[in-house]
Structures are given as structure tokens and as C-alpha cells.
């Protein structure tokens, strides 16, 4: 077990929290969680779900915001759901996070190379190309993905698809890069 980063004192301020939960792959489990956020009026910035190493269990990563007491309730309410196996708030721990975006950008012959350069700077890939568009696949932290989107916006973004944040706690706590 890694060391836990010291929790800041409750100050009643809204913060972004990354909550990671393991849920049984049961009928309606996803609806129960989405429904909980709707019924209690909690925010969802993003929600991802996918399989884990255990085929009976899915991992959900929910990015939400609220003050400490709201987050405490969210954690407890998620825990209370019968299908929930484990809930963890990663916010005050060291964790790895990734967001993936597919960005279809309009191109003209004179802008294509500039777009490709930007992609290269962000270590993004060109995954599709047509006479008038290129599709860039960007992977990284939310801020990094936000940044590339911002850079590409002036060229004209035709379509955009983002996964939302997936996250895992770092095994070795106390070192963040």
C-alpha cells in the first residue's frame, strides 16, 4: 500500500474529484449509478466504463465536482448500491489518468503540415486522412487533450469524440509526474 497524500482541510469549496469504482457486471448496474447521480442532483463531468482483469467486474471512472460533504455523500451512496464492490476517491492520491480524443480537423493543402506538426508536438497520431480532413488521435491527461483541442480549433474542428477520464491509483505513492 502506498502512502496516502494528506487530505486538505475541508473548506466547503467545490473541487473536481476522480472517483474510481468497481461494479459487478449485473443487469442494470450502470443505470443504478447514473440514476443515483440524477436522483441526488450530483454533477457528472465525465463517466467511463469498461471491463477489468476480472470478467465479473467493470471499472467506472467518474469525474464529479462538489464540496467535501457532497463528495462524502457521493462516496457513501455509491458504496450503498448493492452492485458496488469498491469505491475510491483518487483525488488526494497519486494516480495515472488518461483521456483519449479523436479530433477530425478540416484541412487545406497549406494547413495540413501545420496540423501534423501540432500533432507531433503532442505525440498524437494521425489515424485517418482525406482530401479535406485529418483525424488526430490524442491521448494523455485531460489538460493535454484540452490543449491540443485548443490548438486545433482555429483550423476548424468538424467532429470530436472523447472518452472521458480513465484513471488508476499509482502503486508507488508520493511521486507525481
Amino acid at each position: 500500500m502506498g502512502e496516502l497524500t494528506a487530505l486538505p482541510a475541508p473548506d466547503g469549496r467545490d473541487r473536481k474529484h476522480t472517483i474510481s469504482l468497481l461494479v459487478e457486471n449485473k443487469f442494470g448496474a450502470f443505470n443504478r449509478i447514473a440514476g443515483l447521480f440524477a436522483a441526488k442532483g450530483y454533477n457528472i463531468d465525465s463517466l467511463t466504463v469498461g471491463p477489468t482483469e476480472d470478467d465479473e467486474i467493470s471499472r467506472m471512472t467518474i469525474v464529479t465536482r462538489g464540496d467535501d460533504s457532497v463528495i462524502e455523500q457521493i462516496m457513501k451512496q455509491l458504496n450503498k448500491l448493492i452492485n458496488t464492490v469498491k469505491v475510491a476517491d483518487l483525488t488526494y492520491e497519486s494516480f495515472v489518468e488518461r483521456d483519449l480524443a479523436l479530433i477530425k480537423v478540416q484541412t487545406k493543402p497549406d494547413t495540413r503540415s501545420e496540423i501534423m506538426q501540432i500533432a507531433e508536438i503532442f505525440r498524437a497520431k494521425i489515424v485517418d486522412i482525406s482530401p479535406r480532413t485529418v483525424t488526430v488521435e490524442a491521448v494523455g491527461s485531460e489538460q493535454k487533450v484540452d490543449a491540443i483541442i485548443k490548438m486545433l480549433k482555429p483550423f476548424g474542428i468538424k467532429e470530436l469524440a472523447r472518452t472521458g477520464r480513465v484513471a488508476l491509483k499509482r502503486e508507488f505513492q508520493g511521486e507525481v509526474n
Binding site: 443505470n31 443504478r32 436522483a39 448493492i82
Partner: peptide, 16 residues
Amino acid sequence: IVGITRPITKHNYLVR
């Protein structure tokens, strides 16, 4: 009914 009662049950099941 499973959808309708989801927020008002402690838990519910559809037996498949």
C-alpha cells in the same frame, strides 16, 4: 418495473 422502481428499492432484479 425494474427501471421504474430502481430509485425506490434497496435493490431489484430481473430474473433472466
